[in-house]
Design a protein around this nucleic acid. Structure first.
Length: 838
RNA sequence: GCGAGAGUGGCGGAACUGGCAGACGCGCUGGACUUAGGAUCCAGUGGGGCAACCUGUAGGGGUUCAACUCCCCUCUCUCGCACCA
């Protein structure tokens, strides 16, 4: 029967081929990982998905990248750990429960089942024995265990504070989860609300997390910079300004002690505790509060009070201003209008004096006009470093030195101290939601806050709750959960009803995978590093979206340090190498349901198969860049696979008929030029694919090289047994090199050409440098840098002879004519440039 | 505003430490096989020109025998941070 020019068996039928091998791999447990001290390990991890229902193209891309790496490393002889699991707690499950009257647990587990089948259809080489779901009690009991350990160490604590509150999600958000004043999840406006909350003291590790950023050499620079900025260290000085006529002083924070003499007024945050005492005009204060922290105009008013500048004893006015944040520094600033643009604008607006105390070392045209006080003329603040003027005994010092001297002076006089500030805040983890890990504490009328003892863990999330979508967390309604006895006194106690931020779950899941099927287990005291963890961790290659640059990745770095300090592990950084893959774009925008530009992986796999889907997403762009979706590109990938299939199939008969057994390499000697060419191309391709993978995982160019090899094979016509052996060698290596990208078709063809063990168990091919080398090179001749001729010359000629060849070329001779040759530059194996002229 | 990255055919993208710009794929054009082609195969394909040649990597300058690559200026786009004192 003829179908589209192929006989049926000549076609690559992905619908039968792909499931066949998926079953085969699964039955043989080819991807099961076992710790083995004698083998070099490689831990390859992709960010685990939230079980939202179905996978999307972003997942396909992410997991295809990870799978190529895992398969490649396996073939290179590494003992590879490549696990997968589910970030299974979270809001969508709860929303689904309210909407469809379906329990979050049921919804989540059903989604997991469906998505797992989808992942298996992609032929991903996971060790499913290590699968985890963060919503299972066996998993979240360790969240609770960590929480209690952190409570013991003072790393978890409770405090009342203003928190970010999302009305739509009816819960608190961490600072990291607020993006442009909006909720990271639902995009609605976040408001401030005063609540009592549990916090994790990530700031305890602020300095270490910052310092260790420099050791993250396997991370994209961009992500490291984002982390550094997020931690936001600044060194400065706190200074007390006495309030004139009161027995009270005001502490300010500055990173520019060198400008202290230029402080001509002070500004107070409207939320500063002293405001109540200092401000009489409540209406004015209300107005400032209304504009507090907003990026609009800078406004303020004079409190009527004055402070004393400790450097020059000057009386300067004290203002309240909307742009001074209570959350940073001390909530009060010294204003130096000459050297800070904000203060400058403010001073201009309210007619406050401006005093220049820093002058540039070398006056340029731009700032030569810098004058003031009295004779004004200062168009904008001069914010750079320079030399101090109008600064008493410190005048003449450079900014850097002056910072030191002035800080010393302030400290000696007891007027303040040097401090380091971080932008990083402690991590608020309380969530007023149901579908999360219960925080394992109880509130006892007699004993207060009491942690749940280790033997009573896990505190199980009750299943029998109602989802109304109104009021607070369903846990508040669950009488059986709410009421308990105090572990300390046995009296009545009430359970904590808040659950943990789901980012807690994902902060250590990579550690959980290391334990395998026997289940997660951390030693009790005295703790020693767990051997499984010591073997597998850290993650050698982590792959995921850049959207987690400061959320998940920072929390994980924090948790890893907590685990280290608990004695569970002995290293500090969880992820040695990080690859942040680009987004999948269609019609110029990220694929999303709301934009209606999604491509359904189910459809793609059904229509073209998993190999095609993988190949396209790996070929169309390097992994770190955005991937522009193209239906035609998918067809191109499909066509390529069919070409290989057809080629191997068609040549199979003649191969069987006349070739010697084996698919091993042959020597260059005694074979035809066409053979030498194909053999050389094969070795060159092995080299190219290997180095492209090694060089930042540039799969797109690796695949391009394989396409070139296949093109070359297509134009090769074997005539005798020797030729066929060359052909066999080319086929074998094409399949091996392609197998990490498209495991199904290569497995099928691999078996088809007479192999018995899986292609994924084979050794990665090696190239022979001798075989890679060309015998002849095309020599490019340039005259004055312009391309004028090309000729073939043997490799390895000495420069003098190469030069003679170029000059001997009749065409070149003709162009040069009577011109004088001034210089000849020979670049080995590439070109000759003849420079003419007088 | 600050920080990071990018700008190359009709499109996605190649080009390692400066050395033939446009690999590979898509699309397009022509041809073969066809009742048919949105299948497959073959050939061509940056722009201009019949051609020899000229020209071309956002724009302008520079360094060099030689620049997509290095330096300076300008423009555009993407991402991150954003009153952090």
């Amino acid at each position: 029967m003829k179908v589209g020019g192929y006989t049926l068996e000549e076609r690559f039928e992905h619908r039968t081929v792909e499931p066949k091998w998926q079953k085969y791999w699964q039955e043989r447990q080819l991807y099961k990982a076992t710790a083995d001290k004698s083998a070099k390990k490689f831990y390859c991890l992709e960010m685990f998905p939230y079980p939202s229902g179905k996978i999307h193209m972003g997942h396909v891309r992410n997991y295809a990248i990870g799978d190529v790496i895992a398969r490649y490393k396996r073939m290179q002889g590494y003992n590879v750990l490549h696990p997968m699991g589910w970030d299974a707690f979270g809001m969508p499950a709860e929303n689904a429960a309210i909407k469809h009257n379906l329990h979050p647990s049921k919804w989540t587990y059903e989604n997991m089942t469906y998505m797992k089948a989808q992942l298996n259809k992609l032929g991903l080489s996971y060790d499913w024995d290590r699968e985890i779901a963060t919503c299972s009690p066996e998993y979240y009991r360790w969240n609770q265990w960590f929480f209690i350990r952190m409570l013991e160490k003072g790393l978890a604590y409770r405090k009342t504070s203003y928190v970010n509150w999302c009305r739509s999600c009816a819960t608190v958000l961490a600072n990291e989860q607020v993006i442009d004043d909006k909720c990271w999840r639902c995009d609605s406006l976040v408001v401030q609300k005063e609540l009592e909350q549990w916090f994790l003291r990530i700031t305890h590790y602020a300095e270490e997390l910052l310092k260790a950023c420099d050791e993250l050499t396997g991370w994209p620079e961009k992500v490291v910079v984002m982390q550094k900025n997020w931690i936001g260290k600044s060194q400065g000085l706190e200074v007390d300004f006495r309030i004139d006529g009161m027995d009270e002083s005001l502490r300010i924070f500055t990173t520019r002690p060198d400008t202290l003499f230029g402080s001509t007024f002070l500004c107070l945050s409207p939320n500063h505790p002293l405001c109540g005492k200092l401000v009489s005009g409540k209406a004015e204060l209300e107005k400032i509060i209304a504009h507090y922290g907003k990026e609009d105009e800078k406004i303020g008013f004079h409190t009527g009070h004055f402070c004393i500048n400790p450097m020059n004893a000057e009386k300067i006015p004290l203002y309240v201003a909307n742009f001074v944040l209570m959350e940073y520094g001390t909530g009060a600033i010294m204003s130096v209008p000459a050297h800070d643009q904000r203060d400058f604008d403010f001073a201009k607006k309210y007619g406050l004096s401006i005093r220049v105390v820093i002058e540039p070392e070398q006056k340029s045209e731009k700032n030569s006009e810098l004058r003031t006080p009295n004779s004004e003329l200062l168009a904008e603040a001069y914010e750079d470093a320079g030399v101090l003027v109008n600064s008493g005994k410190f005048s003449g010092l450079k900014s850097d030195a002056a910072k030191e001297r002035i800080a010393e002076y302030i400290e000696e006089k007891g007027l303040g101290k040097r401090v380091v500030k971080y932008r990083l805040r402690d991590w608020g983890i309380s969530r007023q939601r149901y579908w999360g890990t219960p925080i394992p504490v109880v509130y006892c009328e007699a004993c207060g806050i009491v942690p749940v003892p280790e033997k009573d863990l896990p505190v199980i999330l009750p299943e029998d709750v109602k989802f109304t979508g109104t009021g607070g967390s369903p846990l508040l309604e669950s009488e059986s959960f709410l009421h308990t006895t105090c572990p300390s006194c046995g009296g009545h106690a009430r359970r904590e009803t808040d659950t943990m931020d789901t980012f807690v779950d994902s902060s250590w899941y990579f550690v959980a995978y290391c334990f395998g099927r026997d289940g997660i287990a951390f030693n009790s005291e005295p703790r020693t590093p767990n051997p499984e963890l010591s073997y597998w961790m850290p993650v050698d290659q982590y792959i995921g979206g850049v959207e987690h640059a400061v959320l998940h990745l920072l929390y994980s770095r924090f948790f890893t340090r907590v685990l280290r300090d608990l004695g569970i592990i002995s290293y500090s950084e969880p992820f040695k190498n990080l690859l942040t893959q680009g987004m999948v774009i269609k019609d110029g925008a990220k694929m999303s349901k709301s934009k209606g530009n999604v491509v359904d992986p189910d459809y793609l796999i059904e229509q073209y198969g998993s190999d095609t889907s993988r190949l396209f997403s790996l070929f169309a762009a390097p992994p770190e860049k955005d991937l522009e979706w193209s239906d035609k590109g998918v067809e191109g990938a499909y066509r390529f696979l069919n070409r290989i299939w057809g080629f191997v199939y068609r040549t199979q008969k003649s191969l069987e008929a006349g070739s010697p057994p084996g698919y091993d390499s042959v020597a260059m000697e005694g074979i035809s030029p066409a053979c030498r060419k194909l053999l050389r191309k094969t070795h060159q391709t092995i080299k190219k694919v290997t180095t492209d993978i090694e060089r930042e995982y540039h799969f797109n160019t690796a695949i391009a090289a394989l396409m070139e090899l296949v093109n070359e094979m297509n134009s090769f016509e074997p005539k005798d047994a020797k030729d066929m052996q060359i052909m066999k060698f080319a086929i074998k290596n094409t399949l091996l090199l392609l197998s990490p990208f498209t495991p199904h078709i290569t497995e099928e063809l691999w078996m088809h050409i007479g192999n018995e063990s899986s292609i994924s168990e084979q050794k990665w091919p090696e190239w022979d440098e001798e075989m890679v080398r060309e015998e002849e090179v095309e020599l490019v001749t340039q005259i004055n840098g312009k391309l004028r001729g090309k000729l073939m010359i043997p490799c390895g000629l000495p420069d003098e002879e190469v030069k003679a060849c170029a000059l001997g070329d009749p065409k070149i001779k003709e162009i040069i004519g009577q011109q004088k040759i001034r210089k000849v530059i020979v670049i080995k194996g590439r070109l000759v440039n003849i420079v003419t002229g007088e």
